[in-house]
Design a protein around this nucleic acid. Sequence first.
DNA 1: ACCATGACTCCAT
DNA 2: CATGGAGCCATGG
Length: 103
Amino acid sequence: MKKSNFSNRVYQVVQEVPVGRVVTYGQIAKKLGKPKTAQAVGKALHQNPNPKEIPCHRVVNHFGRVAKNYAFGGEIAQKKQLIAEGIKFKNKNYVNLKYITIL
DNA sequence: ACCATGACTCCAT
DNA sequence: CATGGAGCCATGG
């Protein structure tokens, strides 16, 4: 699998997200200089399931909601990981917006 | 280059 | 709140 420049940068940004914080797809896209590539960001993460090095569970959508199609056990697994890092949920699948990292 | 797909986002109904 | 369409873009066939 050839790692495209784009995907590589996505992973890099995700890895820089500190514990106890989350980031949105749009934020990542914006940081890469392409604010409209949020969907491509999500695709890149889904295609490269590498939780050992990439904390993709810290990536949520712009509402702070976890991914319903999360690749490693679904939203439940993602939610558990976030809770384990000290992140609280407003509702079932919505992370409190105050946890979103400001890039 | 074209088409289909999708872990997105925005807007209308 | 649910649903759907449009727009954008990376990726793969």
